[in-house]
Design a protein around this nucleic acid. Structure first.
Length: 304
DNA sequence: GGCCAGGCTAGCA
DNA sequence: TGCTAGCATGGC
């Protein structure tokens, strides 16, 4: 991936199609989000690279993504890692031409592919964060899931305060591994979820589970390994393949948000059955993750 | 006030 | 192997 220095910022070439505005709308979908702040034409996010907390302001020139460093001037090596993060966060290495072609021929997806053209899956490059976020969100409404994440991050994450506002980093597995079930229960996680998160943190802290190791495997083996984790079922495994492993064929078919989006898209009186969705998805083959993400996008407004 | 939420596990037939 | 009660609480 090409990137270049621009003084106190770096620039990354953007692929086509790419819509920064649509990405920002997704990032702004919850007012309770604590891991980034969306403003007019920009998103600010705290990263930790080479042990240093780097506050980044991301904007787009149309041709390039500009990442300005607000609180520090990172080393060349740290800049490289920031660039890597941005490539993953905005899924910049995905060639969307196949999706655009498929969606253009698909009666369900066509209007959404046109309306949100250039939107990319907003990924969660960090495996621990992706898994914990998925577990937190299981079987509760999204509003409450964001509440839980906010409590979790603000209690156990690192932060930087800049120009009067505080920016948060997702807690590390090392930190979380030191916690007790009761400490997590205080945040109003269920006992089960507290166990899942704690066991996961310990496994990752011990090096028994890592993104680097999983990346050596093929897609089906990655899925098997994720499913072997207690607290990770089919929905979570596919969600994480989609958001962390950039697997465009990952398909969380049981997702209730997907069901609701399809109900509305198809003008049904009830939610579609799994069988009906699988029938529709025959046409989406290879692009199920993007189909799902565009349908999710249809669930919230045009804000920001 | 009741139903539903970006599900999963364990236990039962 | 397949099915489902129980989880546990907030949002609307």
């Amino acid at each position: 991936m090409k990137w270049s220095n621009r003084g106190s910022s770096i620039e990354l070439n953007l692929p086509h199609p790419f819509s920064f505005d649509e990405c920002l709308r997704f990032l702004a979908r919850s007012g309770q989000e604590v891991l980034h702040e969306v403003g007019e034409g920009e998103v600010v996010k705290l990263l930790k690279v080479e042990g240093e907390l780097v506050l980044c302001r991301v904007t787009s020139t149309g041709e390039a993504l500009n990442v300005a460093f607000l609180n520090t001037s990172p080393s060349q090596c740290a800049r490289e890692l920031v660039a890597d993060y941005m490539v993953e966060w905005f899924d910049l290495e995905q060639d969307l031409s196949g999706f655009m072609e498929m969606a253009g021929r698909d009666p369900v997806l066509k209007p959404f592919a046109e309306r949100y053209e250039g939107m990319r899956i907003l990924c969660i490059p960090d495996l621990f964060e992706a898994l914990v976020w998925a577990i937190l969100g299981q079987q509760i409404n999204l509003t409450f899931a964001y509440t839980l994440k906010k409590r979790f991050v603000e209690r156990y994450g690192e932060s930087v305060t800049f120009n009067g506002s505080t920016h948060w980093l997702f807690p590390s597995c090392e930190r979380v591994a030191t916690l007790s079930i009761d400490e997590l229960r205080e945040l109003q996680l269920t006992r089960r979820k507290a166990e899942y998160v704690l066991d996961l943190a310990k496994a990752m802290e011990r090096g028994e589970l890592s993104k680097e190791a999983l990346l050596q495997l093929d897609a089906s083996a990655i899925r098997e390994n994720l499913l072997a984790i207690r607290g990770v079922g089919a929905w979570t495994a596919d969600y994480v393949r989609m958001k962390c492993f950039h697997d465009r064929s990952a398909f969380p078919v049981a997702d209730v948000g997907l069901h609701l989006a399809l109900k509305e898209a198809l003008g049904l009186e009830r939610k579609p059955t799994i069988e009906e969705i699988e029938e529709l998805a025959i046409n989406w083959k290879g692009w199920e993750a993007y189909a799902t993400f565009y349908l999710w996008r249809s669930l919230y407004g045009e804000g920001v």
